[in-house]
Design a binder for these strands. Sequence first.
DNA 1: TTACTAACCGACCGTTCGTTCAGGCCGCAA
DNA 2: TTGCGGCCTGAACGAACGGTCGGTTAGTAA
Lengths: 238, 238
Amino acid sequence: MTSDTVGDQGGDAHSGTVSAGVDSPSVSRSTASGPPPGPSVSARRRAGRPGHDADSVLRTAVRVFNERGYDGTSMEDLARALGVTKSAIYHHVSGKSELLRQSLDRALDALFAVTREPEATGGPVLGRLEHVLRGSVLALVEELPHVTLLLRVRGNTAVERRALERRREFDRFVADLVREGVAEGAIRPDVDPDVAGRLLFGMVNSLVEWYRPGGGLDAEGLAAQVAAVAFEGLRTPH
Amino acid sequence: MTSDTVGDQGGDAHSGTVSAGVDSPSVSRSTASGPPPGPSVSARRRAGRPGHDADSVLRTAVRVFNERGYDGTSMEDLARALGVTKSAIYHHVSGKSELLRQSLDRALDALFAVTREPEATGGPVLGRLEHVLRGSVLALVEELPHVTLLLRVRGNTAVERRALERRREFDRFVADLVREGVAEGAIRPDVDPDVAGRLLFGMVNSLVEWYRPGGGLDAEGLAAQVAAVAFEGLRTPH
DNA sequence: TTACTAACCGACCGTTCGTTCAGGCCGCAA
DNA sequence: TTGCGGCCTGAACGAACGGTCGGTTAGTAA
């Protein structure tokens, strides 16, 4: 899914330069004088002075946004993380909010792609719901930094409000599915459908708070566990 | 539980002055010239010029923090919401981070109170876990604005990092409970205990994103539904 | 060597930030 | 009427903010 939206992001090399992982607990602000320029790594050599390109800037920016929060991140912070000066960033993007916009759009595109897959629109309700559930987990993992950012948006600016609107649209799609499931008797009727839908995706969305790929649990396995808990519950079956 | 920690918050009067609900989608910044001073409401008349007290300032501040995010809220924003000037706020609190500290402490105190209740430390594991689950939901509802703020903290400042540490301690308590449940065979062994614990409280924590008291579903009913989904799952029992 | 391209620097702009301070205002009790 | 406690204003501070600008550097391609 969303296999070739932006491309080139597959190779997650470029690492090494910045030590702190995505989850680093305390990010010293004053120290950490920044890595040596350590820019992008795209395979084909480009003309012109080597350094960052728009993509590597976005990648780093989103990582820092997720560490400090969007509002808590200054352009100076970004520049330090990139190993360049503030003004260099404006060579790649028009401004801070543009970075946010690109990231949010990417997250939302991945989520909506799931709702358009045939398994999400045809067949028994429970199957459709489960497909959307698992697909959302996969999309969330694949675009983890962007989805993380999306789930923290508060609606302070026009960019954020537009994203919130699209997100609500996605939520409506899921809520409808759950309602339909209750109506057809596939989902237990003693919990409110709206509540159930929100709990379901509350569970999914909470993944961004702790799941990190490459830790022995892959996206498919994660999706399976989420689906198991969501549909069968925690208690040992008897 | 936590029946009389800080008191006086039970009566949620003081309303009326500010129109926007906690969930108001777009919060105009320039307009909304603020309510007429409309200060606190505490029953007993105090000496001196009438106006806000430390408690009413905290209440409003936390509400605005949750609307705009802590970093996205300026003291000017707070002042406007309170109907006073910036400098007036410093009569009640030492600064912005002090407001955050008070709020986070309140949320954490309520959560830890649950873990110290006898039903959370004695009896069968599954019962203990369910008690902590339901108790957390009740605490979350009772201290909704403060818990909401807590769950969004990123660790940018010392105040935030201290709160994150206490929160991790709470998470550990829950994780241990789940692990114990798996070991005793009360919880299904095919999901990883750590994953299960995180999913469980991911579900609970997501309540702050949508649950609002006074909407036909009270805290007890909510806790019951959460427990049902968590332990039995969504699928219709057969 | 030269032309071209892409990325970057350093100085600077106007605005907003959190915070301080000296003083004024309001309502109660004496 | 006066005194006092509690709350508030208006003006200002230095620091940090997002963003702009003209000029420079380091590579590729001819």
